[in-house]
Amino acid sequence: MYKHICLIFILSCCLVNTAQAHRTKVFAWVDGTSVAGEVYFGGGDRAKGANVELLVGEQLVASTNADEQGEFRFERPQPGDYQLKANAGQGHVATFVISADEFLDLSGSAAGTIETQGAEHEDEVGFKNRETCAVLNEAALVKVIQPLRNQLDQYEANIRWHDILGGIGYILGLFGLWSLMRTRRG
């Protein structure tokens, strides 16, 4: 009886926790003019206070610590290709890449405000307006897609039953193979 209770306990432990893992992940996106992101462990637990570094090439640009929710933010970095490196301690390191084209192209509208002071042609102003509209549209789109990207990233980090069962199968199979080799040799 005692044996069975223990077995049930161990099995239920496995059932409850299959969605949780021990993999560190960092995920980031361009939020307006800043880079925002979060550090978490597979399964969704947040890495509180993890150190996050913003790098270009191997050069450190900025460094910050994640808050209680595992979230962080770099204000106003120059648009460009960045690597993010999160360190949650004890060798739990994760990296993420943000490419230059994720940044909104604000250069057109920013330059426009200065240029329009000189020659104020009607159609040129109209063109600038259209460009600003496009930038705003893009920003709105990014905002809508963001939760989806988040969810996808976390889904990928989850552990699924078939992985676990497959792993156990591999282990038993490998030892079986070893056993087979031994008996052939013997």
Partner: peptide, 9 residues
Amino acid sequence: LIHLPLGPS
């Protein structure tokens, strides 16, 4: 896989 949230890690 049996994993417990504990402190910052």
